[in-house]
Nucleic acid binder design. Structure first.
Length: 327
DNA sequence: AATGAAGGCAACCGCAGAAGG
DNA sequence: GCCTTCTGCGGTTGCCTTCAT
């Protein structure tokens, strides 16, 4: 089970292949077949390791290799197979005659993956991303707004002026919204952190970056007023633990806020009790929610789903426009 | 025209499983 | 059953080309 010593041997050439080397390898294999890759370089008169020869042959010199751009059909096949197989490039390559696993892998990493991300799909799960990540700028802006609200509560003259201008009701509504949003994020961050730390699946359903982003956003909303800088996950001791779901300073949910929450349809809303439902299991790649294939093909939204919702808490989200503002 | 950034691709690295002694 | 060797695979790197400023 040990590592092959073949590439550890010193004195062997590395790097790009010259046309002369290609010719030697090609002629030898056409005449003798590749046989043992380990002995091939010596027999073919090449100062390369067998591994390098095999790679050159399978990825470049093989006569049945198809070169050039990937067709629409090939793209669809890759997308479909990747949603089922994950990063099993060799398995995917068997369904695409003339294409090598390396070529498919490169094409995925440089084109398809980016396109899926741009369209709002998680490239690993092929499911719509939990869109609060896409809405992070708004969340950060909310954190800033929260500072302003706190300043208003502390009797800041400017804030008093705002109250005088009849902004009080808006302030209460915004406070309620933020409290609600914070707990949504807390639930998401907790789920993602545990998924990331515990179940490092081969498909990498949730990236560490996403988890960090969720934690950072939660922290931004939770941070004390006047400290609007977003702490890094490292600084927060990102260890997959619970993120405190409270504003640090005292009573946040006033009677006005509670009333607004009821208006928002968030009855039974509690932060400490963890009443929020957990996120859906995003690692379930075998059951994609949306028809991303048609979405990517037609560059249209992934709507088609009728009853299925792209949101992780479909039954929980109230219909209030505020929610759809964020998602 | 020069230069830095971004994209694309070939090749390398290291791990894991299969095969054979 | 254990050890060694070979092969295959997926992730990553680094170079070259193209694009933007």
């Amino acid at each position: 089970m040990g590592r092959s010593p073949c590439c550890d041997e010193s004195g062997l050439k590395k790097g790009p292949w010259t046309p002369e080397e290609d010719e030697k390898l090609l002629q030898y294999i056409q005449k003798n077949g590749h046989g043992s890759w380990r002995t091939l370089p010596r027999l073919a008169g090449l100062n390369r390791c067998g591994k390098s020869c095999r790679l050159r042959w399978t990825n470049y010199l093989r006569p049945d290799i198809k070169r050039g751009k990937f067709s629409q059909e090939e793209e669809q096949t890759i997308l479909h197979l990747h949603s089922i197989l994950g990063n099993k490039w060799s398995a995917i390559a068997t369904h695409l005659p003339g294409r090598t696993d390396n070529e498919i892998k490169n094409f995925w990493n440089t084109h398809l993956k980016k396109r899926l991300i741009q369209m709002g799909f998680d490239p690993m799960t092929h499911r719509p991303r939990t869109d609060f990540f896409a809405a992070l700028p708004q969340l950060i802006a909310l954190a800033s707004l929260r500072d302003q609200l706190a300043a208003a509560a502390s009797g800041d003259p400017a804030a008093v002026q705002m109250q005088g201008a009849g902004v009080g009701a808006d302030v209460a509504i915004q406070a309620a919204k933020m409290q609600y949003l914070q707990c949504l994020l807390q639930s998401a961050a907790t789920t993602i952190a545990s998924a990331g730390s515990g179940g490092s699946t081969s498909s990498g359903a949730i990236s560490a970056h996403d988890a960090d982003a969720a934690l950072a956003a939660t922290a931004a909303l939770s941070s004390p007023p006047g400290n609007s800088s977003v702490p890094t996950p490292t600084a927060m001791g990102h260890s997959g633990g619970q993120v405190p779901c409270t504003f640090p300073e005292a009573p946040v949910i006033t009677s006005d806020v509670e009333a607004n929450l009821r208006l928002l349809g968030a009855d039974g809303f509690t932060c400490h009790g963890g009443s929020l439902p957990p996120l859906a299991d995003l690692s379930d790649v075998t059951n994609p929610v949306a028809d991303w294939c048609s979405a990517t093909a037609a560059s249209s939204s992934c709507g088609g789903g009728g009853a299925s919702s792209p949101f992780p808490w479909p039954e929980f989200f109230p219909d209030d426009p505020f929610v759809t503002d964020f998602l």
